[in-house]
Design a protein around this nucleic acid. Structure first.
Lengths: 192, 192
DNA sequence: ATTAAGTTAGTTACTATTAACTAACGGGAA
DNA sequence: TTCCCGTTAGTTAATAGTAACTAACTTAAT
């Protein structure tokens, strides 16, 4: 588990990247935000890699929360997806810095190990959602004339773009309103 | 206009970013690829900023080509969008490095001027597509019960996600096949 | 003879990281 | 209570390496 200070460092790191990109994430800048010296950072993480690793863990944690909650219950597939989307939007709206960074997978390409981790997080989400889509197709609540991978792209592609537009616009429109409009439209496509 | 050497530098820059992220884009690495010394780069660009600026210009050029070609003709709106998507897929399939970088807007966040340029490129594309969607809604070929901005997200969100998945997967599936499947599905949603 | 495009050698500033040291605290043993 | 010991979280000073960029010089082509 992360200590309080470690959590601070992770949060600050996300903020630094959100503000000015990955090149802004330096030990110096983290230390400056915390108003401590650079070497003091190493009392809490062994290396910069470990900090980025913890950042990715925190991203994973954000999603795993909902996924497990929703999977264990016997909610209809379509409602599960809605809950997942809604949870995402709520979290992003509450933490705009996350919106700027979370779907920017390229930012972690610098290090092979981090890039792999990003991939595996993406895959596990995709696999879960595809399972839900399969359930829906079996019980007839989701149309079967489009394959699951395409359905996945049709649902989450627009969500990602919406969140990206929101972040790039400087959070100038209401994310949840636009998100609801999007989901209403998507439901029309998903149902047979 | 860019000289031959300048075009080389732009292309190499895209490749460096595609491979290992923005942190891999250094004057030293560009020079190494060209097998010339670092200061020689400054014979062709005044600064690193100018190189990144030229990279963004090249991205804009990629899209403007199709957009103007398609706008000037009197092709039906739905076909215009199909042409635009198809052109994008063809270009990315032919130049995978582009696929890794072109939709990674966060990579240019480091510099305010570049970030603004990214925004304005995104906006001009969106505006053009929305105009086409409006035309389609007026002549009845595109459904009117979903607003234009949501339609835009429904069409291009999945396209962007598809291209991103393709790039992150190491180009392991056939982009154009998946792209065609996607467009077929999208057509079902777009038509009334 | 000018110019374009390269070179070598250097600058300054910043990078992650380490070494050595210190102040503050908390728990047992005297 | 006081002394000892270890831990935690910080400090300053220094490391080796890399960043973008500049000055001065060479070479080859127009």
């Amino acid at each position: 588990m992360l200590s309080g200070r470690q959590k601070e460092i992770v949060e600050i790191s996300v903020g630094l990247v959100a503000d000015k990109g990955i090149q802004n994430l330096t030990i110096k800048n983290i230390a400056a935000e915390l108003k401590i010296s650079e070497p003091a950072i190493y009392r809490h993480f062994n290396s910069k890699f470990d900090i980025l690793d913890a950042v990715l863990d925190s991203f994973e944690g954000v999603a795993v929360d909902v996924l497990t909650k929703v999977t264990s219950s016997d909610i209809p597939p379509l409602d599960r997806i809605e809950m997942f989307m809604s949870d995402r939007l709520t979290r992003m709206a509450a933490n705009p810095k996350l919106a700027k960074v979370m779907f920017a997978e390229e930012l972690f390409q610098d290090d092979d190990r981090l890039a792999k981790k990003v991939m595996s997080i993406m895959h596990s989400h995709k696999d879960y959602i595809q399972q839900t889509l399969e359930d829906g197709q079996k019980d007839g609540s989701i149309r079967s004339d489009i394959d699951q991978i395409t359905l996945f792209r049709l649902i989450f592609g627009p969500l990602r773009l919406l969140i990206k537009q929101w972040a790039l616009s400087g959070f100038r429109f209401d994310l949840k309103t636009e998100g609801k409009k999007l989901w209403d439209a998507e439901k029309k496509l998903l149902t047979p």
